[in-house]
C-alpha cells in the first residue's frame, strides 16, 4: 500500500513538477524580458531565443545523464580494470578477442543478425500480402501482431513449453518433440543441442518481430499507387509477378527500415537467451555476455568492453538513420 502511495505521489510530483517548472520558468522569462516598455522589440527577440531551451531543458538534461554520459563513462571503464580503479590500456579488448565465450557470442550474434531480420521480414511480408487480401484480414493481423505485446520472458516460457523434453517412452508434452517422435524420431533435448538451440532461440524473436514487420509493410503495400498495379495487370502480369516485380520494388525503402529496426533489436537481445539457456550449450550472445561479466563476474572493465562492442555494431545503423532523418527534414 505504502508503495502505491509513493507511486501516486511520484506521479503527482512528476506531473505537477513539470507543469510548475514550465509555467514558472515561462513567467520568469516574461518578467526578465517584458514584451513592453522601451526595449520591447529586443526583449521579445531575446525571450524567444531562450524559450526553446526552457522547453527542452528537462528532456535534454535527462537524455544527457541517462544516455550520453554513460557512453563516455563506458568507454572510459573499458580501459580500466575490474573495479574501475586502474588504467589497464587495451588489455580488456585483447582479452575479449582471445576469449572463447566472446568468439562464440560474436558468431551467434552474426547468426542472429542474418537469420532473425531476414525471417521476420520475410514472414512479415508474406503476412502483410495475404492478410490484405482476405476478409478476415484484420483478425489475422491482430493474431500475428499479438506476440509484440508479450514480454521476452513470457515468450521464453511459452516456447520452452514447445521445446519441452520428456525421456523416451514417456508422453511428450512439448509439441516439437511430439511431432518429432510422431514422425519416428527420437525425443531430443532441443535446447542443449548446439547450433540447433541457437536457431530455436531465434525463432522466439522471429515470432515476436514478425508482427512489427507485417504492420509496417502492410501500410507500405497499401500506399503503392494503384496505377502501377493496374498497368501491370493489364499487361498480363500474374498475381505473383505483380507482387514480386511491381509491389516489392516499390516498398524496398520500407523493407530496409524494417530490416534495420529488427537488426537493432537483435543486437540487444538478452532476455530470451538469459531465461531459456543462460548462454549455455553454445548459445551465448553479446548482451548476455555483458550481463554475465557485470553481475556474476563483477568486472566492470570487461562488461563495459562487451557493451562497447554492441555499441560499435549499432553505430553504422545509427549513422544511416541520422542521415535519413536529416535528408527527410530538408
Amino acid at each position: 500500500m505504502e508503495q502505491f502511495v509513493m507511486a501516486a505521489v511520484t506521479i503527482l510530483i512528476g506531473v505537477f513538477g513539470c507543469i510548475c517548472y514550465f509555467f514558472l520558468s515561462n513567467i520568469a522569462l516574461d518578467r526578465i524580458y517584458p514584451a513592453f516598455g522601451p526595449n520591447a522589440g529586443a526583449n521579445i527577440n531575446r525571450a524567444s531565443q531562450i524559450r526553446p531551451w526552457l522547453f527542452m531543458f528537462p528532456a535534454l538534461a535527462l537524455l544527457t545523464v541517462y544516455l550520453v554520459y554513460p557512453v563516455f563513462v563506458s568507454i572510459y571503464l573499458s580501459f580500466m580494470d575490474a573495479e574501475g580503479d586502474k588504467f589497464v590500456g587495451v588489455s580488456n579488448y585483447i582479452w575479449l578477442i582471445n576469449d572463447v565465450k566472446f568468439r562464440e557470442s560474436m558468431f551467434n550474434n552474426l547468426l542472429w543478425l542474418v537469420f532473425v531480420p531476414a525471417a521476420s521480414t520475410f514472414f512479415g511480408l508474406v503476412a502483410a500480402a495475404v492478410t490484405d487480401r482476405i476478409r478476415w484480414g484484420n483478425f489475422a493481423k491482430a493474431m500475428i501482431f499479438m506476440p509484440m505485446a508479450i514480454s521476452f520472458v513470457g515468450a521464453a516460457v511459452i516456447w520452452k513449453l514447445v521445446y519441452e523434453y520428456r525421456p523416451d517412452g514417456q508422453e511428450q508434452i512439448g509439441i516439437l518433440n511430439a511431432i518429432w517422435t510422431g514422425m519416428g524420431g527420437e525425443a531430443q533435448t532441443w535446447l542443449t543441442s548446439p547450433v540447433v538451440n541457437s536457431f530455436l532461440l531465434m525463432i522466439v524473436l522471429v515470432w515476436i518481430q514478425t508482427g512489427f514487420a507485417m504492420v509496417i509493410l502492410s501500410a507500405a503495400l497499401r500506399g503503392i499507387p494503384e496505377e502501377t498495379i493496374e498497368a501491370a495487370i493489364l499487361d498480363g502480369a500474374s498475381p505473383l509477378q505483380v507482387f514480386m516485380q511491381i509491389k516489392v520494388p516499390q516498398i524496398w525503402g520500407t523493407i530496409l527500415v524494417v530490416w534495420t529496426t529488427i537488426t537493432i533489436t537483435v543486437l540487444k537481445v538478452f532476455d530470451i537467451v538469459l531465461t531459456m539457456t543462460n548462454g549455455q550449450w553454445g548459445t551465448q550472445v553479446l548482451a548476455n555476455l555483458m550481463f554475465d561479466w557485470m553481475f556474476r563476474g563483477n568486472d566492470t572493465g570487461r562488461a563495459s568492453t562487451a557493451a562497447i562492442i554492441i555499441m560499435l555494431m549499432v553505430t553504422p545503423i545509427m549513422i544511416w538513420n541520422i542521415r535519413n532523418a536529416a535528408r527527410e527534414a530538408r
Partner: peptide
C-alpha cells in the same frame, strides 16, 4: 538536436547500465 535524438534512439541499454 533532432539528429542527436534520432541517434540516441538506438543506443544500446547495455552501455548505460554500469555507469
Amino acid at each position: 538536436i533532432v539528429a542527436a535524438v534520432v541517434g540516441l534512439l538506438v543506443v544500446p541499454l547495455q552501455l548505460a547500465l554500469i555507469p
